[in-house]
Design a binder for these strands. Structure first.
Lengths: 345, 345
DNA sequence: ACATATATTGCAATCGATTACAATCCAATA
DNA sequence: TATTGGATTGTAATCGATTGCAATATATGT
């Protein structure tokens, strides 16, 4: 088997034309039953396979979809991608992965690169809070030919669909839960609030406080990266305050873990003295031996699936009926030991 | 911006030929300095971008690489993929992700599908221990046009390159370490040994026993899936033996975790009564609060990078000099509390 | 001024499949 | 028998870029 067989090879063998073969293969226009059968048999026997590149060039559809994420090796993102792949593959699409490492220039570059290889759409979780300033991104927006769907970290841009969770509710529920446990001095470890998701978690936190008659104290909000060490650092700051908090709501599981480590090493008890709630339901929050971590599940698999569905709707639509869909999934608070003071609610 | 500009548009605007434009753009043959400059400027101004699909059709290279894994949402595989993407992207390649969910028929199908979309190569961790019986796989092998690189779960097939870790050594070192801790009745939780990696870990385990004068006891080897529940089940079996083991070497971190849970709940102490060692260095093994888990690091990032490099070598080689490369990385035993009886070695 | 060499550029085929339009064939109808 | 029409199949353009070969233009040497 040297070269792949083409429709021309089949045509030649049968004394037909490539056009006829193509039609027979595609069940399209009226082709005599005989020739169709003949073509199909010969195609099988010659091991014919349609050259998707030629098809892509002709049709302008590559059946490739680009997915851009900050990184792939986190449970959240890889789960979303899993959902995307599972949803798109049966429809004939392949998923191309790109990582940005949270660097704006790389994100820009990868957007360009994906458009350049003619993906039929891009699903992305943004790394750059000021995405509108990106040349590559703007070209994508102007062009409007390639559907774009945000998931999780989105930007509120007119005409762009998105799938997110209700981060406000996530923040609200987490905080409300802590209040219900009797906490009234609740700190918040917040990521960069230029991102909607983190701003919304923060706003949910504030709202829950306000709804329950607790005054917002800005000194209890600490900006924290999403990693263990930074969580430790933030906890240290809090513990060193004159009146430390009696609870911490972290917008990241990793930071929550760091905080828990720091707190325990200071001889302070969780949840008795300080309650902790994380965000994302990373696997390790469930695996902890002593203090399983209360957290907010974001249903990444479903998020991926939904984002894929939104994309599919957009490509199937004609340009006229272009609809924008902003799906908001409902997060779920998962109460575990790190915040549960009273065994029975 | 309705349509993308092509070299024909540029040619027309300049009163030239597409051929000339193409050459000017590619710095290839001798083109007058003037026209080159003119073409480049016009291209820029018209927002020209090379149509990769056309290029792919003409050249037969898609600059896409397929990666097939059982699943993407495990730390090990997503880390490998991260490495692959980081290595290949700068060389102009894009990474297409496919998951098999450990199902042979899906694996078969995805291989076909990737070949069909003309990927320039496939990197895979096999899900089917009897891969040679796969039609799609065999076609791929016969064809020999598309480089294939195995990583982690490989098959020993002549002419196919691979990147793995020395699983034998991993198993040996883990077992030796347990022996050094004074254990002499060491159980082994083993995955399906039809896969080389699990067979080799098992063989390393046996060899270490034999080298240290300990008789191999088949009843101490339990076949276990790579998940927490199955680890619990296996531990239960072991604990219920007349003389339970004093150590467990698990070929999976998840099974090790399950075993640890089951053991602790039985009131048995780790590492005092039973030592446990896992495999893979999943993040949670480090995050445990009381009993951080001893495990074997497989350097997934490096594995991904290396697999990508092997692929790059293969594509750059002419057919004549086809070399097969079987890279074996060295795993590293990471000793933590679950197996460390004596504080100082 | 003429022949030859060299530098640029154009022509046309190619990659493989699709598709509007034209052409052919055979049968049925007037 | 001539004509119309439906059923098949062929012709050729198209998608966008590349490239061997031919053609033109310019320069050089005598």
């Amino acid at each position: 088997m040297k070269k792949k067989t083409t429709i021309y090879d089949i045509a030649e063998k049968l004394g037909l034309t490539a056009a006829t073969v193509s039609r027979a293969l595609n069940n399209n226009t009226k082709i005599s039953l005989n020739t169709r059968k003949l073509v199909l048999e010969t195609a099988l026997e010659m091991n014919y396979e349609q050259n998707k590149l030629a098809l892509a060039l002709k049709s302008g559809k590559s059946y490739n979809v680009g997915v851009i994420v900050p990184r792939i090796d986190s449970n959240f993102f890889s789960s979303v991608i899993r959902g995307i792949e599972e949803e798109l593959y049966p429809k004939g699409y392949h998923v191309i992965i790109c990582q940005t490492h949270n660097q704006e220039n790389i994100e820009n570059e990868k957007i360009n690169s994906l458009v350049n290889v003619q993906v039929d759409g891009i699903l992305m979780s943004i790394s750059n809070a000021n995405l509108e300033e990106n040349k590559g991104f703007n070209k994508l927006l102007k062009n409007k030919k390639t559907p774009l769907v945000f998931f999780d970290r989105k930007k509120d841009i007119k005409g762009i669909s998105s799938v997110t969770i209700d981060d406000f509710k996530g923040g609200y529920d987490a905080t409300k839960h802590l209040l219900d446990q009797g906490c009234n001095r609740i700190a918040h470890l917040s990521n960069d609030r230029n991102f909607e998701i983190f701003r919304n978690r923060y706003l949910g936190y504030k709202q829950a406080l306000s709804d329950n008659g607790i005054e917002f104290d800005e000194s209890l909000v600490i900006e924290t990266q999403s990693n263990v060490l930074d969580g430790r650092r933030a906890a240290r700051l809090l513990l060193d305050m004159e009146t430390p908090p009696d609870a911490i709501f972290s917008s990241s599981d990793f930071a929550a873990l760091g905080a828990i480590q720091e707190i325990k090493e200071s001889g302070i008890n969780i949840p008795e003295d300080i309650c902790v709630v994380g965000f994302s339901n990373e696997p390790f929050t469930r695996f902890m031996e002593l203090t399983t971590i209360t957290t907010v599940d974001q249903f990444p698999l479903e998020m991926g699936r939904t984002a894929a569905q939104v994309f599919l709707e957009e490509v199937s639509n004609t340009d006229e009926t272009k609809t924008t869909k902003n799906v908001v999934l409902t997060p779920q608070l998962i109460i575990r030991k790190s915040s549960l003071k009273h065994k029975e609610g």
